[in-house]
Structure formats: C-alpha cells, structure tokens
Design a protein around this nucleic acid. Structure first.
Length: 424
RNA sequence: GGCGCAUUCGUCUAGUGGCCUAGGACACCGCCCUCUCACGGCGGCGGCACGGGUUCGAAUCCCGUAUGCGCCUCCA
C-alpha cells in the first residue's frame, strides 16, 4: 500500500511556524516512506483573501523545499460530494435533520479507540461524543465532516496533525466508519509554544515563516531547526541535511510533549549553515536577500564584502548594520581619538599594493613605532573608517574600501567625523 | 466545569528497570586564540514536578497530587 500523507492548512494568511512544522513532518514522513505528500486547502468560502493566502502558503512551502504531489485540492470543491454523503447518511439513519442542519448520530455506548502513532492507544467513551452538525443550515459542510471525507476520497493513509486535533479524532473516526471508508492511521504531533510557555503568537516575535525569511534565515537551517522541534534522531546528532532528515525521519521518534520555539538556537543553526556555504553561494544568497529587501547597493561591492562577513553574522539580516559602512559613510557614535589617524593616513598612502597583507604589515609597523599595542592603534582607525567599534577584519575592510575612500574617511574623522549619507 | 494529553538542565532533547555519580546541543559564565566582533578550542553552572507504591534495583512500571496545554462552535 502506498503511503499518502497530506497537509491541510486553512487559508488564513502566511504560514505559521507551527503549520510549517506540521507540513514538514508530513513531508518527511511521505518522502521517507517513498509515498505521496498532498496539499489540501481547507477553505469554506471563496473570498478574495483565500486566493492570496493559497499563493502565500504555496510560496512558503516552495521556499522550505516541501514539494507536494498531485494538484492542490480545495475543500470548497467537495461541497456537493459532502452534501450527497450527508444525505446518504440521513437515508441510512446515521444522521438526521435538525433545524435545517444535518447532525450525525454518535453512538450511545461503547468506546472509540485508535492507536495513535505518537500518543499510543487512546480510548474515548461514547458518552463524550455529542451528535455533530455535519452540514450547516446554509448547506455548507463542517470541518469535522469534510476533512475525514476528503481524507477518504483522496486515499490518505496517514493523518499527521497537531495535538489540538486529538479530540476531533473520535468524531472523525465515527464518520469514516459510517461512510464505510478505510480508516487512516493518526499521528498527533505536539504543539509549539512561545518562550513563556504559552501558545506561540505575534508578541513572541517572528511567527510566520515569511517573518524568518525576511530576517535572513535560510531554508536549510530553518528546516533543520523545525525538524528538531519534537523529533530527534539520537542523543547527539543535530545538524542534518535535507537528505539525511528524509532518510532518518520516523514518526516513532516524535515526542509527546509540547516544545518551546527557541529563537537563539535557530540563529545559532542559521549561522552554522551560513558559514558552511561555499563563498560564491554565500555571496549569491546575500545579493538575492538584499535585493528582496530593497537595498540597491552595488552588487560587486556586496560580493566583495561577503567573504568578510561570512564568519561573523548569523543571519543575512545583520548585514546592513554590520557592513553598511562599505556602501555609505557612517557617522561614528563615540569620540574618535584622532592621534593615530594622521599617521595612519600617511602610512596607508604609501602602502603598495593596497591589499590586506601589505596594509596589515604597514599598520603593525606603525603601531610599533608609536609604541602602541596593536589594539590601541587599530581601534581608532576602525572607528574612523567603519563608524563602529565592531566590524569585519580591519585590513580586509580597508582593502575593499580602497585607498582613496579609506584616506578620505581617516581625514574626515580627523576634522570631526565623516559625513553620513543615505544607507538605502 | 467535563474529557483528553503532557511533565528530564532556562530552552531543544537522549534515555523504554541495572550501561545514569542522567548524555548532547542552544543560552549563560570563565580561560585560550585574537586588530574589534565572531568563529574555534578547553572548562564550568544547571535537570528526572511532588508524594506514595512495585522491585534486589526506578528518570524508566503503577496510583495519587500539582502544574501546563488542548478540545468541549451550524471555527478550522
């Protein structure tokens, strides 16, 4: 039997990290099993926002690299089938009309049981199950009816979703049973919380995958991080490629308890992935990211700066603040000790060729002549040239800036600070 | 309130009766490296929610308590 999983978001906007994690688990499971991963949109109306949200969701899944099989299906397209199925249930006495709506008759006694792949065996006594509205009085079928119906129609074999659906499961199982459909296996994955232990929400910071993309996280790192939220391979392996994740992922190793979304760890992983990128690839991503964010900086200069920051920043989003001085003079915050500046300018004017190695040798020589420790001599130069006490390597930065611009900044500072210009 | 699920360092987790004086990672602290920052290396801090059992032996099994979360909608 071919395994078929599905991700069934409702089109309410950008994909939330929790939804992305659910999608990822479904995708990893399907790919691991050599099965299919379907995308189904659980919409109930045709409002304009739906079309946009669907595009957003598809865009996010594509960015994450979660490709789906078959066409995207819409709940809306199943309305008539759902209505027909509901009528059949009424004819069979399994459902009845109630003030214009149709209610499903839940059993009065016994228990509904399923063996959840994550949670284990769960039993729900029938007294807990109230007769359920399956078609509203306006004719639209409800979620708890169409969702299992669609699973049956699509031949879904594994329903992998958040634990907030646990109490829907017995209802859906009963409906499937009444419909005479094959029952899928269920796996209820733990929910995601914010750092305060409460449900993840906007006040915790970034919340949609799109937010993280804008902040300069890259999909490889994000996927790796998401996979580790509620799932683990062993007691020490954390950094895994997409291929390794697919190869190693099993639902049996998904945990039962909710996880807190740890922004610090995500950043750390992102930095790891960024540093591991081949330099040319890194530069490509930086250029693409900055373009997307609306920066119109010179591409060659961005590429030149890329290797100077690759070891330094954890997200692409840190680049403008960290390396913006390459593109515009930055007013330095603090006082610049102007003592070494004229001497540094004089020294740099004579460096030939004007490249990092020569610059370093010359400036170290200067520090020695002035009787200064390297740090004492270099910090003022750094501040004068970059506008900050924290920057990429000084010598490499001077080389990239070029002799003329470097000297201009050293002299500008000597006269009381460089002129800033628009950074965008 | 009812029902369900969960509970190992601050966080993500390993752990399925002896391998655990509980392992790894992030964060944090210290040292080293060093032109700043970062990277890297080394070291440190820090946890089995609580109470009863069962057992020669329990983080692991059972019961209870507490806490958290979820659902209880003609939302999905």
């Amino acid at each position: 039997m071919v395994v078929r999983a599905r991700f069934a978001p409702s089109p309410t906007g950008y994909l939330h990290v929790g939804g992305a994690r659910t999608a990822l688990f479904n995708w990893l499971f399907a790919r691991h099993e050599g099965g299919e991963f379907r995308l189904r949109i659980e919409n109930t109306d045709t409002s304009r926002e739906v079309a946009e949200a669907v595009d957003q969701i598809r865009g996010t899944l594509a960015w994450l690299g979660l490709d789906h099989d078959g066409p995207v299906t819409f709940q809306l397209d199943r309305v008539s089938e759902a209505q027909a199925a509901a009528r059949r249930l009424v004819d069979e006495g399994r459902a009845y009309e109630d003030e214009g709506a149709i209610r499903f008759r839940m059993p009065d006694e016994g228990v509904t049981v399923w063996d959840d792949i994550v949670l284990g065996r769960i039993e729900v006594p029938s007294e807990e199950l109230d007769d359920l509205v399956i078609v509203r009085s306006d004719g639209r079928p409800t979620y708890n009816f169409v969702s299992p119906l669609e699973d049956a129609l699509d031949g879904v074999t594994h329903v992998i979703r958040g634990q907030d659906h646990v109490s829907n499961t017995p209802k859906q199982l009963r409906i499937l049973e009444a419909l005479g459909a094959d029952l899928p296996r269920y796996a209820h994955v733990p929910l995601l919380n914010g750092p305060d232990g409460r449900k993840l929400s906007k006040r915790h910071g970034a919340i949609t995958v799109e937010d993280f993309r804008e902040q300069g996280y890259i999909p490889e790192a994000f996927v790796n991080f998401l996979a580790l939220l509620g799932w683990s391979y062993d007691d020490r392996t954390e950094v895994m490629t997409r291929g390794e994740l697919v190869e190693r992922f099993t639902l049996e190793r998904v945990g039962k308890s909710p996880a807190v979304f740890d922004y610090d760890k995500l950043s750390h992983l992102n930095g790891l992935y960024l540093r591991a990128l081949p330099p040319a690839d890194y530069a490509d991503r930086l250029v693409a990211y900055l373009r997307e964010r609306g920066y119109e900086w010179d591409e060659q200069l961005i590429r030149g700066a890329a290797p100077l920051v690759q070891e330094k920043i954890e997200t692409l989003g840190e680049f403008p603040a960290y390396a913006g001085f390459f593109f515009a003079r930055i007013e330095s915050e603090g006082e610049v000790d102007g003592q070494v500046l004229p001497a540094a300018a004089e020294t740099l004017a004579a460096v030939e060729p004007f490249e990092a190695g020569q610059i370093e040798a010359a400036l170290r020589g200067l520090a020695e002549r002035l009787g200064l420790k390297p740090r004492e001599a270099f910090q003022p130069i750094r501040v004068a040239v970059t506008g900050s006490t924290v920057s990429p390597g000084l010598f490499e930065s001077l080389e990239l800036l070029g002799r003329e611009e470097s000297l201009a900044r050293l002299e500008g500072s000597g006269r009381g600070g460089a002129r800033g210009s628009s950074a965008r």
